[in-house]
Computed example of a mutant assay.
Amino acid sequence: MGEGWSDALAEWTEQKSATITDFVLGAYVTNNVKGIRKYPYSTSTTTNPLRYSSIKTLNEVHNIGEVWANMLHNVYAALVAQYGFSTTAKTNPGGTQGNIVYLHLFIDALALQPCNPTFVSARNAWIQADVNRYGGANKCLLWRAFASRGLGVNAASYNDDSSVPAGC
């Protein structure tokens, strides 16, 4: 999952506006517009079909990390769509815009997840981070984003679930 966390943070540093486009990582490394990952990070399941269940067939850390990074891309897109984008997020982290909220939750979730986290425990760390920092204000948004890629309430053993908690 570390590969996914690092890709997601790299993507955050490259976002320039509230327009969330597909993100290609490391095109400069290979001088290839497709970058270094199998798919661009995208909210489109056509562009990036990776889901929680994809892990069943993956055994390489970069490939597994791509699944997590794409889930976080979906979280990022949802938060920016909901709260907008701050062009000064890198110098003023006190705002309420989506990219700022995302980074706070990202850092908080890193600290809350256990050593050797699973996708489920890392997702739960994001949900708890939101409770701790924002009183759970983003609970349903987060659940919907994770569930959209198979990491819903009942996801387990790399079997997809798209359910969200009651009230969402």
Results as ranks from 00 to 15, higher is better:
residue 36 I to H: 06
residue 38 K to D: 10
residue 40 P to H: 02
residue 41 Y to A: 10
residue 41 Y to I: 09
residue 41 Y to S: 06
residue 42 S to N: 03
residue 43 T to R: 03
residue 43 T to I: 10
residue 45 T to H: 12
residue 45 T to R: 04
residue 48 N to I: 07
residue 48 N to R: 06
residue 50 L to N: 11
residue 50 L to I: 12
residue 52 Y to N: 03
residue 55 I to H: 07
residue 56 K to Y: 13
residue 57 T to A: 14
residue 60 E to F: 05
residue 61 V to Y: 10
residue 63 N to W: 09
residue 65 G to E: 07
residue 65 G to L: 00
residue 66 E to M: 00
residue 71 M to L: 06
residue 72 L to K: 12
residue 73 H to P: 07
residue 74 N to W: 01
residue 75 V to A: 13
residue 75 V to W: 09
residue 75 V to C: 11
residue 76 Y to Q: 15
residue 79 L to R: 13
residue 83 Y to L: 15
residue 83 Y to I: 08
residue 86 S to M: 08
residue 87 T to F: 00
residue 89 A to M: 14
residue 91 T to I: 08
residue 92 N to D: 14
residue 95 G to D: 09
residue 99 N to E: 11
residue 102 Y to C: 04
residue 103 L to R: 03
residue 103 L to T: 01
residue 103 L to Y: 05
residue 104 H to S: 10
residue 105 L to S: 03
residue 107 I to R: 10
residue 107 I to V: 12
residue 110 L to G: 09
residue 111 A to M: 08
residue 117 P to L: 12
residue 120 V to Q: 02
residue 123 R to E: 13
residue 127 I to W: 08
residue 129 A to C: 11
residue 129 A to V: 11
residue 131 V to A: 14
residue 131 V to R: 12
residue 131 V to S: 13
residue 135 G to D: 09
residue 137 A to F: 04
residue 139 K to E: 02
residue 140 C to T: 13
residue 141 L to R: 15
residue 143 W to H: 15
residue 143 W to P: 08
residue 143 W to C: 10
residue 147 A to N: 06
residue 147 A to H: 08
residue 149 R to G: 06
residue 150 G to V: 00
residue 151 L to C: 09
residue 152 G to N: 00
residue 154 N to T: 15
